[in-house]
Simulated scan of single mutants.
Amino acid sequence: METPYGSAPMPIWERPEPRPRVAPVPLSREKIAATAIRLADAHGLDGLSLRRIAKELGVGPMRLYDYVTNRSELLDLMVDAVYAQIAEAGRRSEWRATVLAIARETRTAALDHEWFSDLLGGRPHLGPHALAVGESTAAALSQAPGVHDIDDLQRALGALNAFIIGALRREITERRTARSTGTDEPAFQASLGPYLTRMLNTGRYPTVARLVIDGAHLNAEETFNHNLTTILDGITSRPHT
């Protein structure tokens, strides 16, 4: 379906759904997205396809193309369904509480749906729920004491998003690695401990040695919250230049 402005296809958000059919199985974009999310939660994005979703729904693959034309549109629907969960957190009366709630709910969503972290920071998320989260975040940050104009707001959003994306991708990657390899602290120490001890004993890496020897194994949630508040403290205290 083309837009009135040229040959570019109309975004899935603006295309009407096909007229529902009772037989053999009633479908909707919401139902397709929910099934895709369930499969991605269980098997990841690599094993996700319209054919597999169709099999799960008990319909022919071609029928799904009435609702989504390709994999990219399917991912758009899935992502926006997750953003619907995050959007609920953006209803706070104070700017800092709003940003904290959105960031924490984004982490919760990524832990519930690990594939979601793979899609952060790439293709822009422009579905209605994603835009609602973006609006809530931007509106909240625009009220921060250290944000004086649109340039400040862009930088604040950039810093916040870079932190959230980086933190979540690292946490999810570490969790996947531990799950797939069975890596734990005793196993690591047995396999690489002697090598690391020899390297640190050279004295060339004194700060790394302190981190390894004296550093505690930090709780992921506490670390996320600590670093998040540090980011917001920096935004708040930024002077007008």
Rank of each mutant, 00 (worst) to 15 (best):
L196H: 08
L168S: 00
V212D: 01
L168E: 00
E171Q: 04
P124R: 01
E114A: 14
D152H: 14
D118N: 06
R155K: 08
D151P: 03
H125G: 03
P194Y: 03
S93F: 05
L192C: 10
A156P: 04
P186N: 05
A178W: 10
I150C: 07
A156C: 05
F163D: 02
L168A: 01
R91N: 09
A109R: 04
N225V: 13
G193T: 10
E88D: 11
A140K: 08
Y195S: 08
L131D: 04
S191G: 08
P124N: 05
Y205R: 06
A132K: 13
R155H: 04
A132G: 06
M199T: 11
R155E: 03
D118R: 09
E185P: 01
P124E: 07
A101K: 01
I165V: 15
F224Q: 00
T207I: 15
L218W: 13
Y205D: 14
P194S: 05
A110H: 00
A209I: 02
L126E: 12
T223Q: 13
E171A: 08
S117A: 15
D112K: 04
S136Q: 13
A89T: 02
S180W: 15
E222D: 15
A144C: 07
L211H: 09
D184F: 09
G182Y: 14
Y205F: 15
S93R: 15
T173W: 06
E88M: 12
G90P: 02
G193R: 04
I165M: 08
L196W: 01
I102F: 04
A190W: 01
L196Y: 08
L192M: 11
A138K: 07
E94P: 10
V208F: 13
T137Y: 04
E222P: 00
L192N: 05
R155I: 02
L168C: 00
R198K: 12
V208S: 13
D214Q: 14
L126T: 14
D112R: 11
L131P: 02
A130P: 15
G134S: 07
T223D: 08
S117F: 01
A209V: 01
R210I: 11
V147A: 04
E222A: 08
L111A: 03
N161C: 06
A132Q: 13
N225D: 13
H113R: 03
R96K: 10
A159T: 01
L160I: 04
R107I: 12
L196P: 00
D151R: 14
N225Q: 14
L141M: 12
D112Q: 09
S180F: 15
A187H: 09
G182C: 12
D152Y: 05
R123P: 02
F116L: 13
L160R: 01
L192T: 09
S180M: 14
A209G: 11
A216H: 15
R104E: 13
A187I: 11
Q143H: 12
A144T: 01
V133E: 01
